[in-house]
Each structure stands twice: as structure tokens, then as C-alpha cells.
Design a protein around this nucleic acid. Sequence first.
DNA 1: TTGTATGCGTTATCAC
DNA 2: GTGATAACGCATACAA
Lengths: 345, 345
Amino acid sequence: MTTVYDVARVAGVSTATVSRVIRGSSLVSQDTRERVLAVIDALGFVPDANAQGLSNRRKNVIGLAGLERGGNEIDVEHSSVLFIDQIVHAAEGVLRGTGFSLLLTFGSRGEEFEQRLWSLSGKVDGLLVVEEVMAAGELRELASRIPLVVIAGRRTETALDVFVADNLTGMNALVAHLLGQHRYSRLCFVAGPKDAPDARERQIAFEEAVLAGPDAVIDQVIHGDFSEGSGSAAARVLLSRTSLPEAAVCANDQMAIGVLRELQRAGVRVPQEVALTGFDDIYPSRLVDPQLTTVSQPVRELGTRAAQRLLTRIAEREMPASVQLLPTTAVIRASCGCGHSHGDH
Amino acid sequence: MTTVYDVARVAGVSTATVSRVIRGSSLVSQDTRERVLAVIDALGFVPDANAQGLSNRRKNVIGLAGLERGGNEIDVEHSSVLFIDQIVHAAEGVLRGTGFSLLLTFGSRGEEFEQRLWSLSGKVDGLLVVEEVMAAGELRELASRIPLVVIAGRRTETALDVFVADNLTGMNALVAHLLGQHRYSRLCFVAGPKDAPDARERQIAFEEAVLAGPDAVIDQVIHGDFSEGSGSAAARVLLSRTSLPEAAVCANDQMAIGVLRELQRAGVRVPQEVALTGFDDIYPSRLVDPQLTTVSQPVRELGTRAAQRLLTRIAEREMPASVQLLPTTAVIRASCGCGHSHGDH
DNA sequence: TTGTATGCGTTATCAC
DNA sequence: GTGATAACGCATACAA
């Protein structure tokens, strides 16, 4: 591997000059610059980032750690991939042009993953953490060592920078629509995993919104794990009852799609017999028939804002931490009973 | 930031011993090990990866570079995201546990991106390149500097390791099905961007398969850019003709979905009036109504195999390069005219 | 404008 | 078993 020493020797200058040329310093005469540049090109020299980083005390890398739910490939493809992938693209977009690169790690909660994140902190200047990858205490400890910003974490966090979608606004609007517009009064809720903060918040928001309504009642709460399969399972629970609820509100789109498919398999028409809603507004929610009424989360915005925040925190470590709530919005389509999709021949 | 020196001083040993403990060397007595470990824990010491890498001449990072098509957010979300994201997850899965991390960069072909990749080569031990991010010649030059494996690149490449899906097998099976099973004879093709090798191969495979059929003819070829929007545009071209083709074969699922939605918007029934097929078997292809008949590409397999290959090439630089074709397979669902989807009440 | 010398935090090669 | 000490490749303070 060729180094600055090689370049310096061949170009007949010192390593300091080579370094200056690399960094684009203006304290180099025009023709030595050109000479050095020519040698760099001829030798195919690329500066070693480790050595640069060691000298600069800066790695120009930020890490992104996220959850990878489910063990097998199918699950991975269908569950939380979309959310984290959008975050990845958003973060990469912010970093691009700043000279920083994005280092990825996925895993599932546990000792091993925690270890991995901890040692990852030696490879990066800052960490973007997506969802609750570890206990709040551990996370704060990690954050005391390295700049860290959390995406979709606990909104109750006080010591860390957190960017969260505000489940409340969208869920309120959605329930208001179901109760006000459609006059549904017996609603059921398909909840997410109990250890996911979003799942909890959506459930609470749902329950409060329904209770605040005139005379609506919560028919049943079924717990899933955010996967399409668990949505299907929830639907089977519904189908085994003597009567269906008027509407099934799901804590995310994947489960809603699972519910939809299972109901349709059983010959139950949506939304005629059961209205259905999701949460997240993932791409497929527009493709199912009927199109899914859901709540849109500002996912890319979360990623973008979090990445920007991390960069400024790296530059200015002592900034006070804060929690940023970005509003979600109801997206009314057909599955709640509004209009008709093209599929209703 | 605490260093080995700090740990050594506090623990009353030399930095060499600290290093041995970190690396888990067996040449350390039990109780010094424990003492050092305790200090490491107390001080929250994490070894600096740059310094390690500099000393080891190894970065334990591999880079992944891919194309980010389209400028705006919508496009990014809907076009090629799925493919590259699956590759990312697959590669990360292979790397996990090997001690390597994944460094991501996206961009679109051009001088700037090429520059970025070149300097990226100073940060990693090897490079995973997804699709044709730059001219073949440039890529080979880069590969001469650093271990490099291409995913979904030119199958005609001879100097580089390439992993490609074999578009031929799946397209042949698909066309054979359309001609043999359904007896369609007037087919149209919605092609992808001309600069994408996959797009070219699929088109050629299609044309050859049709010409090889008994008396089928290619009605029209319309060029899109792999986006859903370009599929809609293609459908409008079709709708403006005096008569529709019997079947529209699309070079990918996104475009097929665009075609489908536009046809249905115009009141044309699929597959009754026009049969439709896609390519890739992305998740949404199962959600549209009718479900899309398509060709499945072994995406994760590509990512996994490529990552493994890169690791072995890093260990053994002089291995001869080779092109690996992984077969694609036809996935027969409803949009070609087979059976009926649940939506056909 | 250019060169010299030193530090950056680890690992590894020696001695002890 | 353990400890000095020399790399590793680059950047920069200081000299010239």
C-alpha cells in the first residue's frame, strides 16, 4: 500500500507538503501542488482513513444501530425493515457531503447486541440509535461516552436527545374520524408488542380517544408483535367470536394487512362488515384492496432531523438534551368505510 | 477519552499487558487479567478502532456502495429501495459476528460519486458494489486497489467477482407460461432504463423467448425507468392505442404495479382484458389485486454470497475472479390470467 | 513556501 | 508472565 512517504519521495518533497496538498491547503505553490498531485495520481495513492483519524482525533463515521426483528428471512423482509431502511436512507442523505459515512449494525435486544454497540462506539464519532435497542440506563451510560441521538425512543427520556413521532395527534384524528364520521361505537384494537414504546403509546392514545368519545366502547384488545402473521392471528381471534366489532384499529400497517387478508380469506368484507385501520402508512398500505386508512409517521423527517442533531452535538458536546415530537397525521382512505376502492366491482 | 495508558497506569501494569487482556491473550495471569478488566470497566475504556486498525493494518470495515435513483423522497421510497435494502440486510447478516462492520454510501452515477467511492476505499478493507455505479474500466481500476465484489453487475465481466441473478431462466419460464398455458400471441414489453444491465438482459431474454415461441409476436416495446410512475406512463401509451395487447410483460414489479393501477383507473380489467407480469417479486406484488405474476430474484442470496466472497477475497487476495449466476424463477399468481384473487368478488 | 519532528492509541517484537 | 519500545500512516507546531 502506498503512503505519503512514497508520494513525498517520488515527488521530491516532504510528507508535510504531501499532506498539505491532500488537505487542499493554500500554503503550497502552484507547481509543487501539481507535481504532487501527478504523483498521487500515478501511484494511485489514497490516504488511510485510520491514520487520518488517529491524527485528527476524529473518525468521520457515525454509527446507526437498529433492531432486526424476527429470526428468519421472511420475517425480516416483512416486518420492521421498511421503517429502519427509510431512516438509513434519510441519515445517509444528511451525512453525504459532510464527509461522514454511515456504519450500520442490526441486532436484537440482549447482552450480545449491547456488547456490539459498546465496542462500536470505538469506531465512530457518534451514534444514531433506532428504537429501544437496550435498557434506558445502559443507553444513557453509552451516551455519556459518545454523542448519541435516539430515534423512536421513549418520549419520557430526559437525559438524551430523542426524536419521536407523536402517536397522539394521528391517533386522535383517526379515532375522531371513526367515531364522528362513521359513527362506529364498538371498536377493537390490535396492539403491538408490549415492550415497544410506540405500541404502548398508540394503545393508550387509542383508549383515551375512544373514552373521550360520546358513547363508544372498546370491544376487545388483542396483542400482536407488529408482524403480518400476528395480524392474521388477531383476525382469527375476531372470527372465532360470535359477532365482529364494527371496526378494528391496528397498531401498525403490517398487522392491519394481516388482519385484512385473513378476514378476506374467511369471506368477511372490509370495510362493509368490519372497518379496518393501520398505523405508519407504509407503501403496501396503498396497494391492498381496500386501500388502508392509516396514520402517517414522518419517518424520513425523523431520520433527517436526528442525523442533523447528531452532527451538531458532535461539534458541540455540551448542548442540553431534548425530546422532539414530530406530529403524525391521519390518512383517510377506503378501509375505514370511506368511498370505494377500484377493487369493489 | 481514556486510553490504554490510563488503564495501564491505574492497574499498575504496562500497556502491553492491557493490550493482551483486551485481545484475550492467554499469556496473562488470572489475577492481573481480572485486575485490568476491573479497571477497564471502571474507566469505561473502549479501544480506539483507528489505532487498532493502524497497528493491525486492517480496518474491520467493509463498504457497500449502491445507487440511489430519483431525486425526491417519493421516488426514493418507491423505486429501487427494496432491492438494495435487502442486500444491505443480507450483507450485514454475514458480517455480524465476523468483527466486520458495514459502511454505507449511496449516490448516483457520476464524477462526484466516483470520487466518493475512491476515497471510501481508504476507510475499508473491501468494497461491495451494488449495480453499475460506474464505468467498467473505472471499477476495475478501483478493484486493483482494494478487494471488490460486484452485485448485479455485468455478467460479461471477466476481471471482477460478480454475483448476478440469471434473468434468463425466470424470463424463459414466464414467457413459456404465457405462450404455452395461456396461448397469448400478442405481447408487449415495458422495458427498464437502457443503462441498467438487468433491464437489457430481461428485454433480450424476453425477445428471444417470444421469438422462440410458435407464432407469438412482440406488439410493442415501451421504455420506462423502473419506477412506478414510468409504469403508469407506459399504461397510458397502451391505452392510447386502438387496441390493447393480450399481455404486458414488465421489466420489474414497480412498473408493473404502475401499469396495473393506471389500467384499473381507466376501467380496464386485469387479467381479463390485459394480462400483466412483473419481475423481482417484491413484497407489494403479493398485495395488489390481482396478485402479480412475476419472476423471483434471489436477492438475499446475492447479498449473502457476495459478502462471503468478499471476506474470503480479503483473506486471500489472489483468488481468480469469477462470475456467479444465481437462477431466477417464475412465480405464477393471478395477474397473468391464472385463477382468481380474493378481490374478484 | 517548505521541511523536521512529534503525537495520535494500539499492537507486536523483543528482551527480561 | 511482564515490560520497554518500535512501528503503523498521517497531520501539524515549529523552524527555516
